[in-house]
């Protein structure tokens, strides 16, 4: 059984697009990265799966339960970290963590204590005084303290410093080893590369690439932009060639020396070789 399984899941807000006929399946026990630019539909997908918004059409199952009719059952077994988390003003950190556990009718004091220690959370502080990163840490405790079967995290690392990010991923990996499925959204490719087994890329409300991370990593493409007359269109490894007057851009995957030789023979004023954007890597990977 899959932890998440959607069937033509669609959500539209009035006339604007949310997600369109989304097909997504996440295996149980997987460490899954959900990548896409801002506004692609990552949060909409997650919020629909958790019943915060109801689907316009299509259906989905989380841990084998229907997202509409068995919402509470799902929420009891899932831990969720929103991308922007806020708590009721005036509460102390420990009150928030206790409130979250109480809402689940569970006593998680032991686990939450360990997590607070590891993340360096001062539980006596008022939530109003917390920075984005510290609020996020409290959110992480609330999402994990009841040891859920599935963890859904919406851009979890934003606001966390690098040391905390490492600690955070250590915690996630431990939970994953204990059998929990991890599903997190991000727009940072390196994060997904180093932690996830599987990744899906969403753009304009649709999944465009879905594969294991190992396969995705084989793409070592570079983005090349040149100004001047480029005469090397037949070079092996070029894709996504775009010509705009005096300037040319393309993705190159292949022998870098061949590329440089070709460039050396061209009359160029400028050349720029960069890492391609996330989207370009995925497009390149799939077209190759």
């Amino acid at each position: 059984m899959n932890a998440i399984e959607t069937d033509k899941l669609t959500k539209t807000y009035g006339s604007s697009r949310g997600i369109t006929e989304l097909e997504l399946s996440v295996a149980k026990g997987d460490f899954f990265g959900f990548i896409g630019p801002n506004g692609a539909g990552k949060s909409t997908t997650i919020r629909t799966l958790l019943g915060l918004i109801s689907p316009t059409s299509g259906s989905a199952k989380v841990l084998g339960c229907d997202i509409v009719s068995q919402k509470n059952e799902i929420l009891g077994r899932v831990g969720y970290l929103p991308s922007e988390i806020n708590f009721a003003s005036g509460m102390k950190v420990k009150d928030v963590i206790k409130y979250s556990a109480d809402l689940r009718h569970k006593n998680c004091r032991e686990k939450s204590g360990v997590l607070c220690e590891r993340l360096g959370i001062d539980t006596g502080k008022k939530v109003d005084d917390l920075s984005l990163g510290n609020r996020k840490k409290v959110g992480i405790v609330c999402a994990i303290q009841h040891e859920p079967e599935l963890l859904i995290l919406d851009e979890p690392t934003s606001g966390l410093d690098p040391l905390m990010q490492r600690e955070f991923f250590d915690i996630l990996t431990e939970q994953n080893k204990k059998g929990a499925t991890i599903f997190f959204s991000s727009h940072i490719l390196s994060e997904v590369q180093s932690h996830c087994n599987t990744a899906a890329f969403i753009r304009d409300g649709r999944i465009i690439v879905y594969d294991s991370v190992c396969k995705l990593e084989e793409t070592g493409a570079k983005k090349v932009e040149v100004v001047g007359t480029f005469e090397g269109g037949d070079l092996k490894g070029i894709s996504d060639l775009k010509n705009d007057g005096n300037s040319t851009s393309f993705l190159f995957k292949g022998d870098i020396r061949e590329l440089l030789k070709t460039l050396a023979d061209c009359k160029l004023q400028n050349v720029n070789i960069t890492e391609p954007t996330l989207e370009e890597i995925f497009m390149n990977y799939y077209e190759a």
Binding site: R47, L50, G51, L52, K71, N72, E73, L75, G76, V78, Y80, P82, E84, I85, N86, F87, A88, S89, S100, L103, R104, G139, C142
Partner: peptide, 14 residues
Amino acid sequence: RDRTAEFLMTHPVS
């Protein structure tokens, strides 16, 4: 308004 709805409604309460 206070953006606390997401926190509350993702707990198992109808």
